[in-house]
Nucleic acid binder design. Sequence first.
RNA 1: GGGGACGUAGCUCAAUUGGUUAGAGUACUGGACUGUCGAUCCAGUGGUUGCGGGUUCGAGUCCCGUCGUCCUCGCCA
Length: 591
Amino acid sequence: MYRTTTCGELRTEHQGKSVTLCGWVDSNRDFGGVQFINLRDRYGITQVVFSTKIGTDQFELARSLRSEDVVQVEGIVELRPDGIVNKKIPTGEIEIKADNLTVLNRSEVPPFQTGVPEVPAEELRLKHRYLDLRRPAMQKTMILRHRIMKVMRDYFDENQFVEIETPVLGKSTPEGARDYLVPSRIAQGSFYALPQSPQLYKQILMIAGYDRYVQIARCFRDEDLRADRQPEFTQLDVEMSFIEMEDILDIISGLVKRLMKDVLGRDLELPIPRLSYDEAMERFGHDAPDLRYGMELVDLTEIVKDCDFRVFSEPAQNGGRVRGINAKGAAEKYSRKDIDVLNQYVVENFGVKGVAWLKVDADGSPAGPIAKNFKPEELAAISQKMGAEPGDFLLFSADTFATTCRVLNGLRRRLASELKLVDPNEMNYCWILHFPMFDWDEDEKRHVAMHHPFTAPLGEHVPLLDTDPGKIRAQAYDLVLNGFEVGGGTIRIHDSKVQSKVFDLLGLSLDTAKEMFGFLLDALQFGAPPHGGIALGLDRLVMLFGGLDNIRDCIAFPKTTKASDLMTGAPGEVAEKQLEELGIVVRADKI
RNA sequence: GGGGACGUAGCUCAAUUGGUUAGAGUACUGGACUGUCGAUCCAGUGGUUGCGGGUUCGAGUCCCGUCGUCCUCGCCA
């Protein structure tokens, strides 16, 4: 037996106990006649004391220990002498008086130290991920991730859900993200696609009668990466039959409450607040608003419609919008230089000419370079509508509705962060409901599905399929946590007439649709129950539950922004023979 | 595909804005020390300043290219 005890569990009540510990050397403090080794494993750190009484050979061996050496220590649990307890660690009241030391394995000098506060460069961490994952902060996150998955599985099991695995090698279905493709050796020239989500399979499972399905599923999307986006990610995937939207919201609300309780030990009051998509865009300019702070968007279109300031009046008269946000009391925190930075930010990120702003003077009147363009009563109206008080900082966007949304959402988030309006401990959930059914694709001059082509419209909007599809709102819902979309789902269409109309609007002929997902269309004709579902992004949930700011820290072996794995070198070249077997010919000009 | 930041000792960073032999902390090596816990003290090793060009009397510093990491727009049903 290698060990009797981990490095995190010994306390004063174990005094006198004979134990054997294994772990990695965290530090070695050598005092000549006595040495202290901090021994680390994933459970914690325990101090081991070596005195000269152990014998010269063993003492010299202990002296030779260096960071990350793997050792086994036999010894007796002793209380530390009076007054020299280490309050920083849970085992700080005891230590192990070593009787025997075995070096199980030496470590090379590590490329970075695991036990210091400084976090090494991410490139280095990813290259030596085995060392990075040894850092207590990473171990905490991996264990948090496990806890969340465990609570999820228990919760769904208790609610009669069945976890069913769906294939990783599937069929490419266009629309949506770019697929990762896997060439078929047996059918040369044909390809499998890795799933972007188990969407179609889980609908098939509903038709097959598994009325409550769940899966913690790996999904793949070959798109560019972000701080909160990886090409390979994990979803909690759920689908239910004989249900309406409310049933999905209920079951997921219950899950979230349970996660808050069991993982974070915190209470979550239900119901989770709800906003319609239209309201979210109106009040926050985004479909995943962060509700931990105010600074809501205020519409000023009517007020400025006939003003002399053409930057405002032109969009207002031409179907656009003029809106603003009020950063309360922030006027003095933003110098002209700071505002230049904000201006540069909106120019670079949103392709607009700049940001218009006003600061509210002590007498309550808005001032700034653009103020002279307005009549006093216009300024007063703007001021009143925005609830402006002395010291407030007002920012404006005048453009199309969509652009004002993007600009003001960006500014709202940025200012909230800079002004520290966010309580980092708050966990703020909301549901966003009734997403538009279709987006208008300006390039292709056609409607595209906002979610997927099987999303059901709101019942009362079905007639609009024939008259005004752009106005249709879908039975689609997103779960938002602290301004991040952590989940989304829809109720599916199970009426074939409605389904054909939707295909029509999307410009999909029945033949094309059949070619793309004929198997689902077939299945829908053999007794499909009313059904719907949702998927939650597990990696993002872990990120938010762990108070982290990037998704790579929540994934054991993540990819870089160029989608490579710095540890293994994937993606890598393969032998010519492998390509030959797959019938893949590399073009000469690419070699 | 576009925009931006960064790249200096094993690691984390500095280098007075183009000027002497590129420094510090830490790690590492050797030494001292019997109660430390990010131990301390003494000494030492350690550099193709990512790579390739260019400008200059002179480049870590400026310019061009390239590679890598990160942030971001597009993209992500």
